[in-house]
């Protein structure tokens, strides 16, 4: 009986896999809003369901201070958690809402992938820690504007 249930479970999983084999690629943008405080550095944790989602690319943002791809650990691209961090020592820093980075995802299934972003730290040019509002949004337009 136990063996039968195990076989049935495997069958159900296999049937689910076969019924929803779609693999697609989507891009999501990491946005921040630091209000009137210039953002000089940020570090965020992004968690996702590694069974359905895989990070296949990381790009920088729009503002010149963060146009280069942020630092990340390639091990996080398939492990369910990736940390992004970047800093800029230039004087012209973004204020208000700014797109900091873009993630390219490989997603299995039709459901919208769930990603959770959490602020680790953010700071101004003086090194002061600040709170910023973070959001992950589907890419809009060619450059995510």
């Amino acid at each position: 009986m136990r063996r039968l249930l195990t076989c049935m479970s495997v069958f159900v999983v296999a049937a689910t896999w076969a019924a929803d084999p779609e693999v697609r690629f989507v891009a999501v943008d990491l946005w921040s809003d630091s209000g009137d405080r210039p953002l000089a550095a940020y570090q965020v944790d992004i968690r996702y369901d590694a069974r359905r989602v895989r990070v296949v690319g990381v790009e920088g943002g729009d503002h010149a201070a963060f146009v280069d791809p942020p630092h990340y650990d390639p091990k996080g691209m398939a492990g369910g958690r990736i940390t992004l961090a970047a800093f800029s020592a230039v004087r012209d820093l973004p204020t208000g809402k700014a797109r900091l980075a873009r993630l390219h995802l490989q997603v299995e299934g039709k459901a919208v992938p769930e990603l959770n972003v959490e602020l680790v730290t953010a700071g101004t040019a003086t090194g002061s820690r600040i709170e910023v509002d973070l959001s992950l949004e589907p890419m809009k337009g060619e450059r995510g504007k």
Binding site: A40, A41, Y42, Q43, H71, A85, A86, F87, S88, A89, V120, T121, G123, A125, G127, R129
Partner: peptide
């Protein structure tokens, strides 16, 4: 007392 991106920022600013 913490290790995070603000340490990298401080180092880069010291260099710059």
């Amino acid at each position: 007392g913490r290790l995070d991106i603000l340490d990298a920022l401080a180092m880069a600013q010291a260099v710059e």
